[in-house]
Deep mutational scan, measured.
Amino acid sequence: MTEYKLVVVGAGGVGKSALTIQLIQNHFVDEYDPTIEDSYRKQVVIDGETCLLDILDTAGQEEYSAMRDQYMRTGEGFLCVFAINNTKSFEDIHHYREQIKRVKDSEDVPMVLVGNKCDLPSRTVDTKQAQDLARSYGIPFIETSAKTRQGVDDAFYTLVREIRKHKEKMSKDGKKKKKKSKTKCVIM
């Protein structure tokens, strides 16, 4: 069974824990209790493949930012979460993405942009803004509501699919490099 290491990042209060708990335990946590770091595991079937999701729910508070490099190193894919009623959390996505790329030393890291709290009427981040940002990053965008469960499975499952595509691409690139290195030079 394939294991996928997913990391949920975003500013404090955007609903990272609520999304994760909704996926794992099928219930909505409405009281806000700032996370330092929590880890969850769940076995699911995605596109006919049974897999184990190892999900790291991270601290959004700035005082825990020193811990970010460590979990970013171990993560295979990242859910970059903002709240649709919090423009600052949307603007912060850029910083999370840049930090992930720096730590992973790669421009090509599996990510999904997630606009959470889409059940709320007080939207300050337009869907088109988020779609445009995701398009500019070359990553999928999904709106979710941890409260109603809308888009929750889709967000995590899409990230797994992005990781699969990335692994497939990397193995193809690896095979191309191996083929090239088999060419021999004969000096007579």
Rank of each mutant, 00 (worst) to 15 (best):
T2L: 05
E3I: 06
K5C: 01
K5V: 00
K5Q: 02
L6A: 01
L6Q: 00
V7F: 08
V8R: 00
V9L: 14
V9C: 10
G10K: 00
G10R: 00
A11E: 04
G13W: 03
G13L: 09
G15L: 00
K16F: 00
K16D: 00
T20I: 05
T20G: 14
I21S: 15
I21E: 15
L23V: 07
I24M: 13
I24L: 14
Q25Y: 02
N26D: 10
H27D: 08
F28W: 07
E31M: 06
Y32F: 11
Y32A: 12
T35Y: 04
E37F: 08
E37R: 09
D38Q: 01
S39Q: 05
Y40K: 11
Y40W: 08
K42C: 06
V44P: 09
V44L: 06
I46L: 06
D47S: 04
D47Y: 03
D47E: 06
D47V: 02
G48W: 01
G48E: 08
G48A: 04
E49S: 05
C51D: 06
C51T: 08
L52F: 11
L53C: 06
L53V: 12
I55T: 10
I55G: 08
D57C: 13
T58K: 03
A59G: 13
A59H: 12
A59I: 05
G60N: 12
G60R: 08
E62Q: 07
E63V: 04
E63T: 06
E63F: 02
Y64G: 15
Y64L: 08
A66F: 04
D69N: 04
M72F: 12
T74M: 13
T74K: 09
E76W: 15
F78W: 03
F78Q: 00
F78T: 01
A83Q: 11
N86F: 01
T87L: 07
E91T: 01
I93F: 09
I93W: 03
I93S: 01
H94T: 15
H94F: 03
H95L: 04
Y96S: 01
Y96N: 08
E98S: 04
E98V: 01
E98H: 02
Q99N: 02
K101F: 11
K101E: 04
K101Y: 01
V103P: 01
V103F: 11
S106T: 09
E107S: 10
E107D: 12
E107L: 12
D108L: 03
D108S: 07
D108I: 05
V109G: 01
V109L: 03
M111Q: 00
L113C: 06
L113M: 06
V114S: 01
N116K: 00
N116A: 15
R123G: 14
T124L: 09
V125G: 12
V125T: 11
V125S: 11
V125Q: 11
T127P: 10
T127F: 14
Q129T: 09
Q129G: 04
Q131V: 07
Q131E: 13
D132N: 10
L133Y: 09
S136D: 04
G138W: 01
G138F: 01
P140F: 08
F141C: 04
F141E: 09
F141W: 12
T144A: 04
A146Y: 02
T148R: 05
R149C: 15
Q150D: 14
Q150A: 08
G151A: 13
G151Y: 03
V152C: 10
D153R: 14
D153W: 12
D154K: 12
D154V: 08
F156T: 02
Y157P: 04
Y157L: 12
Y157A: 15
T158H: 05
T158S: 07
L159G: 01
V160H: 05
V160R: 01
V160A: 05
R161G: 10
E162I: 03
I163A: 06
I163Y: 02
I163W: 01
I163K: 09
R164I: 08
K167S: 06
K167R: 13
E168D: 11
E168Y: 05
E168H: 08
M170Y: 05
M170V: 07
S171W: 13
S171L: 13
D173W: 02
K175D: 15
K175P: 15
K175W: 03
K176P: 06
K177P: 14
K177R: 09
K177N: 15
K178Y: 09
K179V: 14
K180Q: 14
S181E: 15
K184M: 04
K184S: 11
C185A: 15
